Simulated assay, not measured.
Amino acid sequence: MTAGYRDESLITQVAGVHADHAAPGQVLTGRPTSSSTLPGLVVRMLRHGEIYDGADVLDLATGSGYSAALLSRLLGDAHVTSIDVDPYLTEAAAERLDRVGLHPKVVTCDGNGPLPGRYDRIVSMVAVRPIPVSWLEALRPGGRLVTCIANTSLIVTANKTDDGWAHGQIERDWAMFMPTRSGSGAYVSRLTDMYEAIRDQSGEDVRQGRYPVVDAGAGWELRSMLEVTAPGIEDRYEEDEDGRRTAWLLHEDGSWARASAQGTDCPTVHQAGPRRLWDIFDDLRFHWLASGSLPLYGARVSITPKGVIRVWRGTWKGVIR
């Protein structure tokens, strides 16, 4: 019971198996597929949504039902719809909400597809890339959406205009959510076999890197910029007992890189495939060092009716599609 009142995320489902269905002492491996999100983050996302009395709100990704509960207390049941792709999650959340006297509309559906209504606010507790067309179709003119971009820590807020576009910004805030799923099963990495094959392989191009090895996945700003610049790169990282750091970058186009060094020494970098992924990564790090920042946070955003996100700040421009 006390865990539910701590300001931390609680993993409730791993590889499609919910904690309710796990045997006592069972240890599951794989990626989390649902959680009860950090309560403070839920509140921040709702604040970004600029919720107001009388607004019809879509809570996208029911999870434990916590965000739906907050919205129902604030707005009343009739103004809240909560959806999730997993039928067990929606069923269990609806039962929990009922026990505390809350009855928002809870629907099992794919958040990437048609939505069950029209809304003044869409607040997503899952990450997407690009923005699903159905979101813009379901959002009323003047309505506002809040979401994270998949594989980044970028929170996008945008208001829909009469022409079907939405305009806003990348907030000077950060969060990371699981990406949307089209089914209730586990997430599957398509690059696991590739990683095993190239883990210790010599590259076509071997040279010394410019900067120390870092864990790209833990450096949220760098990871976000890498995803926007070269989408689809997966990363791995290890540090052994002697302090040797090794990082891998992989892409389904066959490109890969491995950088390894003792501590903060400049690494030996192996690369192969059509692109030099570590060079792309180091170019971003050079920009960061030379400029003192990366241009993503605070950038302006325009979202086309097809869900493509155009991003710019100063002279820098990017497209998230």
Rank of each mutant, 00 (worst) to 15 (best):
H103N: 00
L60V: 15
L102E: 04
V57G: 00
S35Y: 02
L74T: 11
A94D: 08
Y66D: 05
A61E: 13
T62F: 11
E50S: 14
D53R: 06
S67L: 13
A69V: 06
R73V: 04
T37K: 09
V42E: 09
P32D: 05
D53F: 08
L89R: 03
L58V: 01
P32K: 01
M45P: 03
A68E: 11
R96C: 09
E95Y: 06
R44Q: 14
L102H: 07
Y52K: 12
A55F: 03
S64P: 12
E50R: 14
S72E: 04
A94G: 08
A92I: 13
Y66T: 11
G54N: 11
G49F: 12
L74P: 03
S82H: 06
S72M: 08
P32F: 02
L97T: 11
R73W: 14
L70C: 10
G65W: 06
A68F: 09
L38G: 13
L46M: 14
D98V: 03
L102F: 04
Y52M: 12
P32R: 01
A78H: 09
G101V: 00
G63E: 07
A69H: 07
P87N: 08
G54A: 09
D98S: 04
V42H: 00
A61W: 08
V80R: 01
E50Q: 13
E50G: 12
G63D: 03
L89D: 01
R73A: 02
R31M: 13
Y88Q: 03
R31T: 11
D86A: 01
S35I: 08
T33S: 07
D53A: 13
L41M: 15
P32Q: 01
A94Q: 10
H48R: 11
D86M: 02
A68R: 05
L97Y: 13
T62Y: 12
L58M: 09
A92S: 13
Y88L: 10
A78Y: 08
R44W: 10
G54P: 06
L41E: 09
L89I: 07
I83N: 03
E91K: 09
L41K: 14
S34P: 05
D86W: 01
A69D: 11
D98A: 07
P87D: 03
H103Y: 07
S64T: 15
Y88W: 15
E50Y: 07
D53S: 14
L74S: 07
A69E: 14
G63N: 07
V42A: 07
V80P: 02
R31W: 09
S36R: 15
M45R: 02
G101R: 10
S67V: 04
E95S: 15
Y52D: 12
V42T: 12
D53I: 04
L60M: 14
L97K: 09
G40D: 12
R99H: 13
I83Q: 02
D59L: 05
D86Q: 04
V85F: 00
R73F: 08
G101P: 06
L60N: 00
G54H: 05
L60Y: 00
H79F: 12
G101T: 01
A55L: 09
S64G: 06
L41A: 03
L97E: 08
V80S: 10
D59A: 02
L102V: 02
A55W: 03
T37H: 15
L74R: 15
V85D: 03
I51R: 05
R44I: 04
D77W: 04
L97C: 12
D53G: 09
H79D: 10
G40F: 13
H48M: 08
T90P: 13
A78C: 08
A55Y: 04
